[in-house]
Amino acid sequence: MAFGPFLLLALMEGLVTSATLALAAAGLSLVFGVMRVVNVAHGEFYMLGAVLAWAVAALVPGPPALAFLAALVVAPLLVGALAAAADGLILKRLNYDPEATIVATIGLLYMIQQATLSLYGPNANPVQAPFDWRIQLPWFGYSGYKLFVILAAGLVLLALWAFMTRTKAGLIMRATQVDRTTARAFGINVDRVYMGTFALGAGLAALAGVLIVPIQQAHYLMGGDPLLLSFIVVIIGGLGSLRGTLIAALVIGLSDGVISMFFTPTLAKILATLLVAMVLVFRPHGLFGAKA
């Protein structure tokens, strides 16, 4: 394949990776930003979204699009409720101590993973995309649904941005993020804000899982990879900065796509990983984060 089309494909794939990253990282960034909590189980919420999409598809008759729409509603709600329960039962009692929450969410990760293995099984199951549309370019074909994922990621981030800046709930969350004590003094129920934030973050992860499962498969171990990448995106983007998260997702996704053109795949992965680590070493607060 000539260089031009090759680059085009690499960029398209990079954009899809960016969209995946941005979707998976948005919820983590929110939780990180507002609560200062490192949620190691974030990837499992994403996995639960994908698995629930599969379950909904198995239960809802009719065209795949209908089941997909149902999953877009059901999965985030269920996962959000689970996260709210985890917050009330565990995280709140830990007083959101950073180290204790890391350990607790590692415990949560094991529990969710094993419960999924027991209930859902070890197989990777496909979920049909809501529509079957393929683009044929002169040099190669491309999945229409992948382009839809890019669009959906943009919409989700836009909606989240609007929620945070244009609604009262968003204002309260931002106030809590800036200063928990003052927020409490102004009569904000910080406990409820935290529970809501944690549930919203988990719901976003589940939404990402539903959107992405048609181009991957639902598998009980699928949460590990997005977790790692979302962490990277969130840190590089700067704590709690939605704009930073988006830009970091674009930078990482596209550079991953383009680097893989020039090196053997595993070497490209090594270089990309080290590159991101170096960014962090020399910009410890991320590209867009405020200096702490």
Partner: peptide, 28 residues
Amino acid sequence: LLALRTAGVSFMIVTLMFAQAGFLTLLY
């Protein structure tokens, strides 16, 4: 030498990424 330029959560992530690069290097 590199990772200790960072602290807290960033230190956690940087060490994680070095380890991941190390794992891939063993495969490479």
